[in-house]
Amino acid sequence: PPLQNNQPVEFNHAINYVNKIKNRFQGQPDIYKSFLEILHTYQKEQRNAKEAGGNYTPTLTEQEVYTQVAKLFKNQEDLLSEFGQFLPDA
């Protein structure tokens, strides 16, 4: 999708955050991979809900995303709290 005027801030924040996670879990690629899978599942659910026009409730809620990421990022409080800044209604 084309970039909109107010998008770059969020985009840059996301890039920095993904870099931070990659660096932190350099020796644990499975953790990074699981994080990506959670994100993709969430995105897919959001898309399904949007296409269903309100007739579909995502099975992966924001709360569940946060809980799953918290399990992954245990002992990495800074990463988790930063993740909370991205998540709607966290």
Partner: peptide, 27 residues
């Protein structure tokens, strides 16, 4: 940024769209 894989890029995309949705829900 440097050595971003397609997977990384899609993570960036999901995160920034999350952030947009968050902002939309707050305003």
């Amino acid at each position: 940024s440097h050595d971003f894989t397609p997977l990384d890029s899609s993570a960036v995309y999901v995160l920034s769209s999350m952030a947009r949705r968050r902002r939309a829900s707050q305003s």
